[in-house]
Amino acid sequence: MTSPREAAVSLERLMVRYGHATACEDVSLSVTRGAVYALLGRNGAGKSSLVRCLLGQQKPTAGRAFLFGEDVWKRRASLMARVGVVPEEPDAPPAMTARQIADFCRRLYPSWDQAAVNQRLERFGVPTDVPFGKLSKGEKGEVMLAVALGHEPELLILDDPTLGLDVVARKALYEELVGELADRGTTVFITTHDLSGIEGIATRVGILKDGRLVLDEDAETLKSRFRRIRYGNEITETRSAYGTELDAFEAVKVKVRGWGVDAVVSNYDDLSFERFRQTDGVVDAEVAPMSLEEIFLAVAGEGPAEKAIGAQIAKGASR
């Protein structure tokens, strides 16, 4: 893991509790500068609590959150000059128009680029003289993104920014994000449900499940080691053991269907697969790459079997 001082974002054994309820527990992660980190998790997985801690808006019950190597709870005000934020719920004062919001922020950031903000708002087609409270959900998100990028932040933190957005608004947001990355290489920390949207952007992925970080890995590595394997399972005269053919893999999900077995494995490699194909009784074995969404479903799914596997993976992640 990158040291907190080198990383743009770093969490050390973060825990957030509300009374007896635990929102997230023992979460440690690190995001290097220039990376796009996608934190995935189902509703209630603890993503927003974690983001609030990351923004210095909530004190963790235990552990610490760092931005650019500094404790964000203690140094929030100065760190926020380097950070752009798009919250899950757009929180600008409802009575302010987009122009007033931009004007308010202009006074707070020395590097504020008003022209760029105006251009973005124009590009989004957001009315600048309508009170924020009367804008649509998508427009609010766009205003927040325009404002978040107004001071050319080193780090952009987006908390489920596409939640409730229509397809057009989502597309606009990602285009803006991609443009920003291409222009300035801003570090991005994004929590989202929109896995297809983030798929081509994220360089690293974390999956939060029941408050625990069950997966934290480079997106490419992740995608290369997760595979869906489908095969027929025949009874042969020479076969001595059944159900052990997948032992060479770490199976995240196994479903026995009429035509055979449908499995998701998390440690795929071609050599092992070739050996697997040779296994007595295994016929018509096929392997297919998985999308981020499929991997997420396999890891963060809620069935009892998946829960057990999730726990097993978490155990592996902690090693």
Binding site: L55, A77, M80, A81, V85, P93, C105, L108, Y109
Partner: peptide, 16 residues
């Protein structure tokens, strides 16, 4: 209602 987060997400100290 956590709307004060708008101000805390700016380079403004708590005192300010």
């Amino acid at each position: 209602n956590r709307r004060i987060g708008f101000f805390f997400a700016r380079p403004l100290s708590s005192l300010t």
